[in-house]
């Protein structure tokens, strides 16, 4: 069995690092997609028609309960043969769709928890001041609901980052794929795969610290204990 070689390490390093752009770019693209698409789930769930919100809940549950790898394979291999809407997509696009949709269902839940945390009194004040639905969401509800969820969103970013190598299975050439290629060429997997692990560590650990800092800052920003209206019990209901 071969021993660890620094020569191999430094030989493999430039090659593996080349994939960092793809891996990081895919992470950012998937996350942006999930952030935007998350709102789709959140708002669809709020449609006050029972059958619609039930259907949306069920679809979200289905997506969350299925492995992302299966979803990636489906989009890459099976989607082109789906009648009417089926089309062939590039591996990169497939990865954005697959991982983006998968994580958007989690992010939709995060948004929902943020919105549920808004006191009933805020909705009533917005109504009393005659805000339109759009303005109510954009100036009153979301600016209060989203900042507290940033740490949770950050955690999902890191979790997602670690799932990005799944994309190599459909041919997106990120750092993992390049390390594998190097290994196959030189019959040396130890060093290139160590490099991959190190790169993930170097990127995700500082991100985790940054998110922790952000969380502290968010908590300081405005005192969440502001008694902005515990829901008044309609008279007659209580007592």
């Amino acid at each position: 069995m071969k021993k660890w070689s620094w020569d191999t390490f430094f030989d493999a390093f430039p090659m593996v690092v080349q994939g960092l752009g793809i891996t990081a770019g895919l992470t950012v693209a998937c996350f942006l997609f999930a952030l935007i698409f998350g709102f789709f789930w959140t708002f669809m769930q709020r449609i006050p028609i029972k059958s619609v919100s039930w259907l949306i809940r069920w679809i979200m549950e289905f997506i969350r309960s299925t492995p992302p790898l299966v979803q990636l394979f489906f989009i890459y291999y099976a989607f082109p043969s789906v009648p009417v809407i089926g089309m062939t997509l590039s591996p990169f696009t497939c990865a954005i769709l697959g991982l983006g949709i998968h994580f958007s269902t989690y992010i939709g839940e995060v948004y929902r928890s943020g919105i549920d945390g808004i006191d009933e009194g805020q909705w009533e004040a917005a109504k009393a001041l005659n805000f339109s639905t759009r303005k109510k969401w954009s100036t009153i509800i979301l600016p209060q609901a989203i900042p507290p969820t940033i740490p949770m969103l950050g955690n999902y970013l890191i979790i997602m980052f670690k799932e990005i190598p799944l994309a190599s299975t459909i041919g997106v050439v990120g750092i993992l794929q390049l390390a594998k290629n190097y290994g196959a060429q030189h019959f040396n997997y130890l060093e290139p795969l160590t490099i991959v692990a190190l790169l993930f560590l170097v990127l995700s650990y500082p991100s985790a610290i940054l998110i922790g800092k952000l969380e502290k800052k968010m908590n300081r920003r405005f005192d969440k204990k502001e008694p902005s209206g515990s829901k008044p019990i309609p008279e007659g209901k209580g007592a």
Binding site: Q144, P147, E226, P227, S228, G229, P232
Partner: peptide, 10 residues
């Protein structure tokens, strides 16, 4: 005007 003020904390 509400009993619990309902000011916008942000």
């Amino acid at each position: 005007v509400f009993q619990h003020f309902n000011l916008f904390p942000h």
